[in-house]
Design a binder for these strands. Structure first.
Length: 354
DNA sequence: AAATCGGGGCA
DNA sequence: TGCCCAGATTT
Protein backbone atom coordinates (compact mmCIF):
# COMPACT_ATOMS: atom_id res chain seq x y z
CA UNK A 1 0.00 0.00 0.00
CA UNK A 2 2.68 2.47 1.06
CA UNK A 3 4.98 1.47 -1.78
CA UNK A 4 2.10 1.69 -4.23
CA UNK A 5 1.26 5.29 -3.28
CA UNK A 6 4.92 6.28 -3.51
CA UNK A 7 5.38 4.69 -6.93
CA UNK A 8 4.40 7.92 -8.66
CA UNK A 9 6.30 10.08 -6.15
CA UNK A 10 9.76 11.48 -6.85
CA UNK A 11 11.36 11.01 -3.43
CA UNK A 12 14.81 12.33 -4.28
CA UNK A 13 13.48 15.49 -5.90
CA UNK A 14 11.08 16.02 -2.99
CA UNK A 15 13.94 15.76 -0.50
CA UNK A 16 16.06 18.19 -2.44
CA UNK A 17 13.31 20.79 -2.88
CA UNK A 18 12.34 20.57 0.78
CA UNK A 19 15.89 20.71 2.13
CA UNK A 20 16.99 23.57 -0.14
CA UNK A 21 14.03 25.57 1.12
CA UNK A 22 14.81 24.67 4.71
CA UNK A 23 18.51 25.57 4.50
CA UNK A 24 17.55 29.01 3.19
CA UNK A 25 14.51 29.66 5.36
CA UNK A 26 14.78 27.75 8.63
CA UNK A 27 13.55 29.52 11.73
CA UNK A 28 16.16 30.72 14.19
CA UNK A 29 14.99 28.99 17.36
CA UNK A 30 16.82 28.82 20.70
CA UNK A 31 16.88 25.01 20.80
CA UNK A 32 18.51 24.91 17.37
CA UNK A 33 21.75 26.48 18.58
CA UNK A 34 23.20 23.08 19.45
CA UNK A 35 22.45 19.41 19.10
CA UNK A 36 22.80 18.75 22.83
CA UNK A 37 20.33 15.90 23.32
CA UNK A 38 19.17 17.25 26.70
CA UNK A 39 18.35 20.63 25.18
CA UNK A 40 16.56 18.98 22.27
CA UNK A 41 14.68 16.78 24.71
CA UNK A 42 13.49 19.67 26.90
CA UNK A 43 12.35 21.61 23.84
CA UNK A 44 10.41 18.67 22.44
CA UNK A 45 8.55 18.08 25.70
CA UNK A 46 7.66 21.76 25.98
CA UNK A 47 6.51 21.88 22.37
CA UNK A 48 3.98 19.07 22.78
CA UNK A 49 0.60 20.59 21.91
CA UNK A 50 2.14 24.02 22.44
CA UNK A 51 3.02 26.79 19.99
CA UNK A 52 6.64 27.84 19.43
CA UNK A 53 6.01 31.43 20.52
CA UNK A 54 4.56 30.24 23.82
CA UNK A 55 7.49 27.93 24.52
CA UNK A 56 10.41 30.28 23.83
CA UNK A 57 10.38 32.30 27.10
CA UNK A 58 9.75 29.14 29.14
CA UNK A 59 12.61 27.38 27.37
CA UNK A 60 15.10 30.17 28.18
CA UNK A 61 14.09 30.28 31.84
CA UNK A 62 14.10 26.50 32.19
CA UNK A 63 17.55 26.02 30.63
CA UNK A 64 18.96 28.80 32.79
CA UNK A 65 17.57 27.18 35.92
CA UNK A 66 18.32 23.57 34.91
CA UNK A 67 21.23 23.71 32.43
CA UNK A 68 22.13 20.01 32.63
CA UNK A 69 20.46 16.71 33.43
CA UNK A 70 22.17 16.83 36.82
CA UNK A 71 20.62 20.18 37.74
CA UNK A 72 17.15 18.94 36.82
CA UNK A 73 17.64 15.58 38.51
CA UNK A 74 18.60 17.23 41.80
CA UNK A 75 15.84 19.86 41.79
CA UNK A 76 12.72 19.84 43.96
CA UNK A 77 9.59 18.90 42.06
CA UNK A 78 7.87 22.08 43.24
CA UNK A 79 10.65 24.18 41.69
CA UNK A 80 10.26 22.32 38.40
CA UNK A 81 6.50 22.85 38.44
CA UNK A 82 7.04 26.52 39.26
CA UNK A 83 9.20 26.81 36.14
CA UNK A 84 6.41 25.10 34.18
CA UNK A 85 3.64 27.26 35.71
CA UNK A 86 1.26 28.48 33.01
CA UNK A 87 2.54 26.13 30.32
CA UNK A 88 -0.08 23.45 30.93
CA UNK A 89 -0.03 19.65 30.76
CA UNK A 90 1.96 19.56 33.99
CA UNK A 91 2.57 15.82 33.89
CA UNK A 92 5.08 16.67 31.15
CA UNK A 93 7.25 18.41 33.76
CA UNK A 94 7.00 15.64 36.32
CA UNK A 95 7.64 12.93 33.75
CA UNK A 96 10.59 14.85 32.33
CA UNK A 97 12.23 15.14 35.72
CA UNK A 98 11.53 11.48 36.47
CA UNK A 99 13.07 10.44 33.15
CA UNK A 100 16.10 12.69 33.64
CA UNK A 101 16.69 11.08 37.03
CA UNK A 102 16.55 7.71 35.27
CA UNK A 103 19.14 8.92 32.76
CA UNK A 104 21.46 10.05 35.56
CA UNK A 105 21.00 6.83 37.53
CA UNK A 106 21.10 4.31 34.69
CA UNK A 107 22.93 5.93 31.78
CA UNK A 108 25.56 7.96 33.65
CA UNK A 109 23.85 11.17 32.63
CA UNK A 110 24.02 10.49 28.90
CA UNK A 111 20.72 10.65 27.02
CA UNK A 112 20.23 7.26 25.30
CA UNK A 113 20.53 7.06 21.52
CA UNK A 114 18.51 3.92 20.78
CA UNK A 115 14.74 3.69 20.16
CA UNK A 116 14.41 0.96 22.77
CA UNK A 117 16.07 2.85 25.63
CA UNK A 118 14.54 6.22 24.76
CA UNK A 119 11.06 4.75 24.48
CA UNK A 120 11.29 3.42 28.02
CA UNK A 121 11.71 6.90 29.49
CA UNK A 122 8.65 8.53 31.07
CA UNK A 123 6.98 11.06 28.82
CA UNK A 124 8.94 9.99 25.74
CA UNK A 125 6.43 8.63 23.24
CA UNK A 126 6.75 7.80 19.55
CA UNK A 127 7.04 11.41 18.41
CA UNK A 128 9.57 12.61 21.00
CA UNK A 129 11.66 9.47 20.60
CA UNK A 130 11.94 10.06 16.86
CA UNK A 131 12.60 13.76 17.34
CA UNK A 132 15.53 13.14 19.70
CA UNK A 133 16.98 10.37 17.54
CA UNK A 134 16.80 12.43 14.35
CA UNK A 135 17.52 15.95 15.60
CA UNK A 136 20.15 15.21 18.26
CA UNK A 137 21.62 11.98 16.88
CA UNK A 138 20.98 12.36 13.15
CA UNK A 139 19.26 9.00 12.76
CA UNK A 140 16.68 8.53 9.95
CA UNK A 141 13.74 7.95 12.30
CA UNK A 142 10.24 9.36 11.77
CA UNK A 143 8.99 12.03 14.19
CA UNK A 144 5.31 12.28 13.34
CA UNK A 145 3.47 15.19 14.92
CA UNK A 146 0.47 17.20 13.81
CA UNK A 147 2.51 19.11 11.25
CA UNK A 148 3.87 15.97 9.64
CA UNK A 149 0.42 14.39 9.42
CA UNK A 150 -1.01 17.54 7.85
CA UNK A 151 1.79 17.90 5.30
CA UNK A 152 1.86 14.22 4.37
CA UNK A 153 -1.92 13.90 4.20
CA UNK A 154 -1.91 16.70 1.65
CA UNK A 155 1.18 15.81 -0.33
CA UNK A 156 0.18 12.14 -0.70
CA UNK A 157 -3.60 12.69 -0.46
CA UNK A 158 -4.05 10.44 2.57
CA UNK A 159 -7.68 10.64 3.70
CA UNK A 160 -7.49 8.58 6.90
CA UNK A 161 -8.71 10.24 10.10
CA UNK A 162 -5.57 11.66 11.75
CA UNK A 163 -7.30 11.48 15.15
CA UNK A 164 -6.93 7.70 15.01
CA UNK A 165 -3.84 6.05 16.44
CA UNK A 166 -3.32 3.75 13.49
CA UNK A 167 -3.05 6.73 11.15
CA UNK A 168 0.08 7.91 12.96
CA UNK A 169 1.64 4.51 12.37
CA UNK A 170 0.75 4.70 8.71
CA UNK A 171 2.38 8.13 8.53
CA UNK A 172 5.53 6.72 10.12
CA UNK A 173 5.71 4.15 7.33
CA UNK A 174 5.56 6.89 4.73
CA UNK A 175 8.16 9.00 6.51
CA UNK A 176 10.55 6.03 6.69
CA UNK A 177 10.41 5.76 2.93
CA UNK A 178 10.65 9.47 2.19
CA UNK A 179 13.03 10.79 4.88
CA UNK A 180 16.46 11.97 3.78
CA UNK A 181 19.14 9.48 4.78
CA UNK A 182 21.81 12.17 4.35
CA UNK A 183 20.21 14.76 6.64
CA UNK A 184 17.29 13.27 8.56
CA UNK A 185 17.60 15.96 11.25
CA UNK A 186 16.94 18.75 8.76
CA UNK A 187 14.31 16.72 6.95
CA UNK A 188 12.12 16.27 10.02
CA UNK A 189 12.54 19.87 11.13
CA UNK A 190 11.86 21.07 7.59
CA UNK A 191 8.49 19.32 7.51
CA UNK A 192 7.60 20.93 10.85
CA UNK A 193 8.70 24.39 9.72
CA UNK A 194 6.73 23.96 6.53
CA UNK A 195 3.65 22.89 8.47
CA UNK A 196 3.97 25.79 10.89
CA UNK A 197 4.57 28.55 8.33
CA UNK A 198 3.19 27.50 4.90
CA UNK A 199 1.23 24.25 5.01
CA UNK A 200 -0.99 25.67 7.76
CA UNK A 201 -4.34 24.20 8.88
CA UNK A 202 -6.34 27.04 7.31
CA UNK A 203 -5.46 28.95 4.15
CA UNK A 204 -2.21 27.15 3.35
CA UNK A 205 0.25 29.24 1.34
CA UNK A 206 0.56 26.90 -1.61
CA UNK A 207 1.82 29.70 -3.85
CA UNK A 208 4.89 29.96 -1.63
CA UNK A 209 5.31 26.23 -1.07
CA UNK A 210 8.63 24.71 -2.16
CA UNK A 211 7.02 21.29 -2.66
CA UNK A 212 3.73 22.33 -4.27
CA UNK A 213 4.69 20.52 -7.46
CA UNK A 214 4.89 17.27 -5.48
CA UNK A 215 1.53 17.81 -3.73
CA UNK A 216 -1.43 15.65 -4.80
CA UNK A 217 -3.93 17.72 -2.79
CA UNK A 218 -2.74 20.93 -4.45
CA UNK A 219 -2.92 19.29 -7.83
CA UNK A 220 -6.59 18.52 -7.20
CA UNK A 221 -7.33 21.74 -5.31
CA UNK A 222 -8.42 19.91 -2.16
CA UNK A 223 -5.70 21.11 0.22
CA UNK A 224 -8.30 22.84 2.42
CA UNK A 225 -10.18 19.54 2.84
CA UNK A 226 -7.15 17.73 4.27
CA UNK A 227 -6.29 16.37 6.70
CA UNK A 228 -9.48 14.57 7.73
CA UNK A 229 -10.01 14.80 11.47
CA UNK A 230 -12.92 13.72 13.62
CA UNK A 231 -14.45 16.54 15.64
CA UNK A 232 -13.75 16.76 19.35
CA UNK A 233 -16.63 16.57 21.78
CA UNK A 234 -17.42 19.67 23.77
CA UNK A 235 -16.33 20.33 27.33
CA UNK A 236 -18.16 19.09 30.37
CA UNK A 237 -19.37 21.89 32.65
CA UNK A 238 -18.17 21.90 36.28
CA UNK A 239 -19.36 24.59 38.72
CA UNK A 240 -17.57 25.62 41.92
CA UNK A 241 -17.40 28.31 44.53
CA UNK A 242 -13.79 29.31 45.14
CA UNK A 243 -13.02 30.66 48.60
CA UNK A 244 -10.44 33.33 49.34
CA UNK A 245 -10.16 32.64 53.05
CA UNK A 246 -8.17 35.13 55.10
CA UNK A 247 -7.27 34.69 58.77
CA UNK A 248 -6.50 37.31 61.41
CA UNK A 249 -2.82 37.27 60.43
CA UNK A 250 -3.61 38.34 56.87
CA UNK A 251 -2.82 34.87 55.57
CA UNK A 252 -4.74 32.98 52.90
CA UNK A 253 -5.73 29.33 52.85
CA UNK A 254 -4.32 27.32 49.95
CA UNK A 255 -4.04 23.61 49.31
CA UNK A 256 -1.99 21.26 47.17
CA UNK A 257 -3.99 19.26 44.64
CA UNK A 258 -3.65 15.45 44.57
CA UNK A 259 -0.70 13.99 42.68
CA UNK A 260 -2.96 12.34 40.11
CA UNK A 261 -5.41 13.78 37.64
CA UNK A 262 -6.13 17.34 36.66
CA UNK A 263 -3.49 19.93 37.61
CA UNK A 264 -1.70 17.34 39.73
CA UNK A 265 0.57 18.69 42.50
CA UNK A 266 -0.33 22.31 41.78
CA UNK A 267 -1.75 24.62 44.44
CA UNK A 268 -5.13 26.30 44.58
CA UNK A 269 -7.62 28.16 46.72
CA UNK A 270 -10.27 25.80 48.14
CA UNK A 271 -12.95 24.89 45.61
CA UNK A 272 -16.43 23.87 46.74
CA UNK A 273 -18.61 21.92 44.27
CA UNK A 274 -21.79 23.85 43.52
CA UNK A 275 -23.83 20.98 44.96
CA UNK A 276 -22.51 21.91 48.41
CA UNK A 277 -23.21 25.63 48.03
CA UNK A 278 -25.82 25.62 50.83
CA UNK A 279 -23.42 24.06 53.33
CA UNK A 280 -20.17 25.84 52.61
CA UNK A 281 -19.22 26.54 56.22
CA UNK A 282 -19.94 22.94 57.24
CA UNK A 283 -18.04 21.63 54.25
CA UNK A 284 -14.98 23.74 55.00
CA UNK A 285 -14.99 22.90 58.69
CA UNK A 286 -15.27 19.17 58.02
CA UNK A 287 -12.65 19.12 55.28
CA UNK A 288 -10.21 21.80 56.46
CA UNK A 289 -10.90 22.28 60.16
CA UNK A 290 -11.49 26.00 59.71
CA UNK A 291 -14.50 28.00 60.96
CA UNK A 292 -15.67 30.49 58.36
CA UNK A 293 -17.59 33.69 58.13
CA UNK A 294 -18.63 34.08 54.52
CA UNK A 295 -18.26 37.51 52.95
CA UNK A 296 -19.33 39.08 49.67
CA UNK A 297 -19.04 37.52 46.24
CA UNK A 298 -16.10 38.98 44.35
CA UNK A 299 -17.35 38.01 40.91
CA UNK A 300 -17.41 35.10 38.51
CA UNK A 301 -14.96 33.71 36.01
CA UNK A 302 -14.83 30.82 33.60
CA UNK A 303 -11.88 28.70 32.60
CA UNK A 304 -11.84 26.28 29.68
CA UNK A 305 -9.68 23.16 29.47
CA UNK A 306 -9.57 20.69 26.59
CA UNK A 307 -12.36 18.56 28.04
CA UNK A 308 -13.76 20.55 30.99
CA UNK A 309 -15.23 24.00 31.48
CA UNK A 310 -15.08 25.53 34.95
CA UNK A 311 -17.65 28.09 36.02
CA UNK A 312 -16.27 29.69 39.16
CA UNK A 313 -17.78 32.10 41.66
CA UNK A 314 -15.17 33.86 43.75
CA UNK A 315 -16.19 34.36 47.35
CA UNK A 316 -14.29 36.06 50.17
CA UNK A 317 -14.34 34.61 53.67
CA UNK A 318 -12.75 35.16 57.07
CA UNK A 319 -11.34 32.33 59.15
CA UNK A 320 -12.58 32.73 62.72
CA UNK A 321 -10.90 29.92 64.60
CA UNK A 322 -9.62 26.40 64.40
CA UNK A 323 -6.39 24.91 63.15
CA UNK A 324 -5.96 23.57 59.66
CA UNK A 325 -6.56 19.84 59.82
CA UNK A 326 -6.12 19.05 56.16
CA UNK A 327 -2.64 17.70 55.47
CA UNK A 328 -2.31 19.36 52.08
CA UNK A 329 -3.62 22.79 53.16
CA UNK A 330 -1.97 25.76 54.87
CA UNK A 331 -2.25 29.50 55.49
CA UNK A 332 0.37 31.61 53.72
CA UNK A 333 1.12 35.32 53.46
CA UNK A 334 0.11 37.13 50.31
CA UNK A 335 3.74 37.68 49.29
CA UNK A 336 4.43 33.95 49.69
CA UNK A 337 1.86 32.97 47.07
CA UNK A 338 4.40 33.60 44.33
CA UNK A 339 6.54 30.73 45.60
CA UNK A 340 3.85 28.13 44.85
CA UNK A 341 2.89 26.80 41.41
CA UNK A 342 -0.70 27.77 40.64
CA UNK A 343 -2.75 26.92 37.55
CA UNK A 344 -3.71 29.91 35.41
CA UNK A 345 -7.32 29.72 36.60
CA UNK A 346 -6.22 30.42 40.16
CA UNK A 347 -3.65 33.03 39.16
CA UNK A 348 -6.59 34.96 37.80
CA UNK A 349 -7.99 35.13 41.34
CA UNK A 350 -4.95 36.82 42.83
CA UNK A 351 -6.33 40.19 41.82
CA UNK A 352 -9.31 39.69 44.12
CA UNK A 353 -6.97 39.49 47.10
CA UNK A 354 -6.69 42.61 49.26
C1' DA B 1 -10.14 3.14 20.53
C1' DA B 2 -11.45 6.64 23.53
C1' DA B 3 -10.71 9.61 27.41
C1' DT B 4 -7.66 12.43 30.03
C1' DC B 5 -4.58 16.17 30.53
C1' DG B 6 -3.76 23.17 29.83
C1' DG B 7 -3.54 27.06 27.94
C1' DG B 8 -3.26 30.51 24.28
C1' DG B 9 -4.29 32.46 19.80
C1' DC B 10 -7.00 32.85 15.90
C1' DA B 11 -11.02 33.46 12.57
C1' DT C 1 -17.48 29.78 20.06
C1' DG C 2 -14.63 25.99 17.86
C1' DC C 3 -10.22 24.55 16.28
C1' DC C 4 -5.38 23.84 16.46
C1' DC C 5 -0.99 23.33 18.51
C1' DA C 6 6.74 19.80 17.59
C1' DG C 7 1.58 14.25 22.15
C1' DA C 8 1.76 10.85 26.08
C1' DT C 9 -0.61 8.16 29.26
C1' DT C 10 -4.43 5.89 31.18
C1' DT C 11 -8.69 3.52 30.80
Amino acid sequence: MVKQVLKSFNILQFQEDLLQWYYANKRDLPWRKSQDPYRVWVSEIMLQQTKVDTVIPYYYRFMEKFPTVYDLAEADEQDVLKAWEGLGYYSRARNLQSAVREVVATYDGKVPDTPEELGELKGVGPYTKGAILSIAYNQPEPAVDGNVMRVFSRVLKIEDDIAQAKTRKLMEEYVREVISKEDPSSFNQAIMDLGATICTPKSPGCMLCPIAEHCKAYEEGIQEQLPVKKKAKKQKLMEYVVLLIKNDKEEYLIEKRPSNGLLADLWQFPMIPIAKVNQITDFVFQNYGVHLELMVSKGKLTHVFSHIKWDLEIRAAEAKMGTVTKESARFVKKYELKDYPFPVSHQKMMKYID
